[in-house]
Design a protein around this nucleic acid. Structure first.
Length: 203
DNA sequence: TTAATGATGGGCT
DNA sequence: GCCCATCATTAAA
């Protein structure tokens, strides 16, 4: 008798539960390091290890949500564990995981991933074969994974876009530094990355 | 190697 | 009109 085919050929881990995103946003940013960001598209699966994040908090001048709810930042005030994707600089997208209870307005920006699966597709989309340049930046990783406003608001525990825990323990030390590309609250050390990792956006 | 610059368009005062 | 949670390219050192 034939066995049913599994939807994936191996167990890549379970999606992070909603409660994970209800921890302190800076803690979520730290804990997301080492987790897998997965985008299931029609003909392939694109995955990478999260290696760099930034926390954006309420009452944080650099946070999109700090000046109240707008049409653009509305997802930040919505359900934790959902995607907040925004369009910026006229041509790029950035991907966030919404944290904190509904109505608060906090999120973690994923700034870089280490490509694992679907590297050929990423290379095609990015126009380069250099694996260290495929997703080493928030705009780059959205290009590589095919993330745009279409994924804005997606449930990261029940959609083609998900973050999973492989169960592997972090081997690298976590470095905390100031955030990149902002002009307000520049001194807050809420950027996190894996020490020595070559896939981060900068050292 | 690092630093400066242009691209490009939506959001918001 | 100015500001952007950016990136690729060019120039300089």
């Amino acid at each position: 008798m034939n066995q049913p085919l599994p939807s994936v050929t191996y167990n890549m881990g379970d999606p992070l539960p909603r409660g994970f995103y209800l921890q302190d946003t800076r803690e979520v940013a730290r804990l997301l390091l080492g987790k897998w960001l997965v985008h299931r598209e029609d003909d392939w699966i694109l995955t990478g290890v999260i290696v760099e994040t930034e926390a954006y908090l309420k009452d944080d001048p650099a946070c999109h949500a700090s000046r109240g709810i707008t049409n653009r930042n509305a997802p930040m005030f919505g359900n934790p564990g959902h995607a907040y994707v925004y369009f910026t600089y006229g041509m790029y997208h950035c991907f966030n995981a919404v944290t904190a209870p509904e109505g608060i307005g906090e999120a973690v920006l994923v700034r870089a991933i280490q490509p694992v699966e679907g590297i050929e597709v990423m290379q095609e989309r990015r126009g380069t074969n250099d694996v260290f340049n495929l997703a080493s930046g928030p705009g780059k990783l959205c290009m590589a994974l095919g993330l745009s406003l279409k994924q804005n608001g997606f449930d990261l525990a029940a959609s083609p876009l998900t973050i999973v825990d492989t169960g592997e323990r972090l081997q690298s030390e976590v470095i905390a530094t100031t955030r990149v590309g902002i002009s307000k609250a520049v001194e807050m050390p809420w950027r996190y990355y894996l020490a020595g990792n070559r896939f981060v956006s900068r050292k």
